[in-house]
Each structure stands twice: as C-alpha cells, then as structure tokens.
Computed example of a mutant assay.
Amino acid sequence: MTNVSDVQATVVAGSLAVFLPGVSAADREDILLGNLFAQVTAREEYAEGLVPDWFANYRRKLSFLGWDAAPPPGVALPGPDRVGVKLNALAQIKQYGSAALAAATGNALDALAREPQALDLFDVSMRHGTQAHLQFMPCVRHSGDYFDMVLYHMETVVDRTWNARTLLYNPVVAHIDYSKSRLQLVRFNLRLFRDQHKQRVQARLQGKATSFLRNLNLTAPGSP
C-alpha cells in the first residue's frame, strides 16, 4: 500500500494533479506546466466563443504537447449516481486505472477540503460562465520519461450559489448529469515536451504559473 506521506498533490487551476511515488519534483513541475498551458489556452478560446467543446479542445492541446490520450477499452460507464463528484470520480479511476491511483486521489481530495485557499483557486478556475469544467489527474511513472495518468473530466451547469465544495463533496447536488463525466487513459512523453514545447509554453505563461498552483498537505491533522 502506498504511504500517504509519499504521495504529492497539487491544485493546478481547475485540475487536481496527484503523483504517486517515483515522480520527481522536476517531472511534476513539467507535467503541471503542460497541464496549465492547456487549461489556460482552452479557457481563453472557450470564453471567446472559438470552440464549443471545452474538453475536446483541452485534450487536443495536451496531445500536441506529448500526451497520448485515449478512452478506456470497452464502454466507460459513469460511477455511482447521486454520491457527489468525488465518489463518482474515484469509482471510475479505480475501475479503469488502479486501486492505488483511486486511493491517492481520494486522499488528495480530502486534503483539498481542508485547505480553503487551494479550494478557492480550484473553484475560480473551474468556472467558465455558467459552466464548470474540472479534472482529476492521478499520475504514476511508467518507465523512463513516460508517465501514465487517468484523466477524469466533469462538466456541469453551475449557478452562483454553488462552489467547489458543494460540487465535489455534497452527495445530493441536484442537476448533475454524471453521464457528462469523461475518462481518458494518458501516456505522457515528457522528453518530447521538454525538447520541443517547454520553452514556448513557459513564454506563453510568462512566469505566471505559480499563481495557479497550490501544493496540498496530504497528512491529516493528528496523524503521526
């Protein structure tokens, strides 16, 4: 079983990235950088009305950066209904990824609930007008410069009374259509990203990446 103290997790705008042991700090930084670039540019183009499908555009941008994403084999079914986005996501991550990835993501979501500043960042970043687009991305090293991830995406209509805490943790939120959740299995070629795209991505973000990132403390209060 993976020790929770060995798992790292970061809110990166409207995504929660979770890293199992074996992903170095430098690797985490570049994985987060690519994800943030895809989110920021997809958000801008969606707001300008250039693309109607936020997730498809976000996925295309990740693919260009070296993320080879595909839906899981067979028919990806939604997780349990009316249990809140958190448990819906964990059920799918466990089914199509692994129990270890689901457990690490669950620990990260628990930590997110304890950290108001990180939750506020997630809340502001996931909103696109009356739509919310959010991702969970547990990640593990495959081999060498290749990393495997399960990318869970949920989109839903939100109103001003909702916030990220309501959406993630309230099991009785009305009007959530769990069939809107989408899952992708990803293999990321980090060497390709570094050799061909990293410099341009850094220039595009203009050093603003840190304002979109919040590292989480996964150790629960009172834990040894």
Rank of each mutant, 00 (worst) to 15 (best):
M1N: 07
V4T: 12
V4H: 04
V11C: 03
S15G: 12
S15T: 03
L20P: 03
G22W: 02
S24E: 11
I31M: 12
I31H: 08
I31Q: 07
L33S: 06
L33K: 04
G34A: 07
N35D: 13
Q39N: 08
Q39K: 09
R43E: 09
R43D: 12
V51R: 15
V51Y: 12
D53T: 10
D53F: 10
A56H: 08
N57Q: 09
N57M: 01
Y58T: 00
K61H: 07
L62W: 04
D68V: 07
V75D: 10
A76D: 05
D81H: 13
R82I: 02
R82Q: 14
G84P: 09
V85A: 13
Y96D: 04
Y96I: 03
S98G: 03
L101G: 01
L101I: 01
A111Q: 03
L112P: 07
A113P: 00
E115N: 11
P116G: 01
V124R: 15
A132L: 02
H133F: 14
Q135D: 04
M137W: 00
C139H: 03
C139Q: 09
R141S: 03
H142A: 15
G144R: 13
G144V: 11
Y146E: 10
L151W: 13
Y152S: 08
E155T: 14
V157G: 11
V158P: 09
R160P: 00
A164G: 05
T166M: 15
L168A: 07
N170V: 06
V172T: 14
V173T: 13
A174V: 12
H175I: 01
I176C: 07
D177I: 06
K180I: 00
Q184L: 14
Q184I: 01
L185A: 07
L192D: 09
L192P: 01
L192I: 02
R194E: 14
Q196I: 04
Q196Y: 15
K198C: 03
Q199Y: 06
R200D: 07
R204C: 03
L205H: 11
Q206F: 12
Q206T: 03
A209C: 05
A209G: 03
T210A: 14
T210D: 14
L213P: 00
R214D: 01
N215A: 05
N217A: 05
L218N: 02
A220C: 01
P221T: 05
S223D: 14
P224T: 03
